[in-house]
């Protein structure tokens, strides 16, 4: 965090420029949604732009570009927890509990055996 008034005064121009950049990126976000890139393409593009905007807010407005190690430490823990939460949907799709399993070879073999009699 800046310690003196003169240091802060120098950063005001940066805050205004980042504000302007965020507005431009908002227009780009809306315009990009009209592109026909397929669902996966549109989702990826929108999230990439949102991540860029979010990074600007975090780095400049929240002063994460020059913070103390304890703040970065708590952020690393946050990111790990967030990634675990985001991977929960993946775990649910991998979950096969309760899904009937048909073994094709066994079924085929049984049918062949039946035909043999």
């Amino acid at each position: 965090m800046h310690s003196d008034a003169e240091e802060v005064r120098k950063h005001i121009r940066t805050y205004l420029m980042i504000g302007g950049a965020l507005l431009v990126f908002t227009v780009i976000t809306v315009a990009a949604s009209y592109l026909n890139l397929g669902v996966a393409g549109n989702v990826t593009l929108a999230l990439v732009i949102a991540t860029m905007k979010g990074s600007m807010v975090a780095a400049v407005f929240m002063h994460l570009n020059h913070e103390k190690p304890w703040i970065y430490g708590s952020l690393v823990l946050t990111i790990i927890g967030f990634l675990v939460l985001m991977s929960v949907p993946m775990f649910t799709t991998m979950d096969n509990i309760g899904t009937p399993i048909h073994a094709p070879a066994a079924v085929g073999g049984a049918e062949a055996g039946h035909e043999g009699h």
Partner: peptide
């Protein structure tokens, strides 16, 4: 810091809910 976080959340909510 709290207010910028609220802004940050909306930056993701807007495309996810309105545009996709």
């Amino acid at each position: 810091l709290y207010w910028h976080f609220v802004d940050l959340v909306w930056i993701f909510l807007f495309p996810v809910l309105y545009l996709l």
